[in-house]
Amino acid sequence: MNLKRRILKDKLLKILVIFFSLSTLLPLFFVLFTVVKNGIAAIDLKFFTSLPVPAGEQGGGILNSIVGTFLLLIIAFLIASPFGILVGIFLTEVQNKFTDLLKILVNVLQGVPSIVMGIIGYLLVVKPMGGFSALSGGVALAFMMLPVVIKNTEETLRLVPSYLKEASFSLGTNYTRTILRVVLPAGMGGVFSGILIGILRIAGETAPLLFTAFGNPFLNINPLKPVDALPLLIFNYAMSPYEDWYKIAWGASFVLIMIVLILTIITKFIVRRWKTQF
């Protein structure tokens, strides 16, 4: 009797757990469905190759924000990956109170709200340089990417067995080359996927760009001038009062989600494929 009750309770709670878990499929489905449905309707070839037009005019595309997004990602990548890898190596190679503190600070930086990163990009670059720019946006994004790269580098390099280092030393290799040519290549898969995960994290970010990259209806590849970015365009257009602009925002959302999705798949592939066997 009592046993039956217990088993019943067990079953009931399992069903509840399954129910709640499965219901998270719902928002995912709705979001993806809405974006794909509205997005595909908005997209044609010209959508990718033309610039925005003033409200009320027909057509208009997102070429400037696609280019801008890539420009921003490249700037962030160029700043965050060498610096992040360097700090990652430092944290694996040196162990003392200072590096313990740094490890905590990496976690702290990862938790800083993205809008604050925007303010930092503004104070660090926009204000001294006297204007909005792709560079400032890239810097703000690099700050968000940095902890991801550092953490992944550190965690991967920690897994590289010490006997490889010893083997390298025993051949008369100096410390520098041992780290750069043995340890780092052995952990390259992890380091690389860390960079990709970092890019993934910032690819859809809007908040850090609001008052750094700022937006720009024209095509620009000069890092010292403002640029548009897909997330920025989606925000500006979605908040506008114009119907045609919503359409473009849906198209841009679709493109952005596709970029994120493709990056995710590439990352997974690399994580699996590049995993060095020891």
């Binding site: 006997y163 010893e166 025993s170 043995v182």
Partner: peptide, 26 residues
């Protein structure tokens, strides 16, 4: 030169490169 208890060829290198690893790394 030194050889260790556990075989430890460099996992990222081919057999060929492992043989001349000393030259490559130096």
């Amino acid at each position: 030169g030194m050889v260790f208890q556990r075989p430890n060829p460099f996992p990222t290198m081919s057999i060929y490169d492992n043989v001349i690893a000393g030259y490559i790394l130096n």
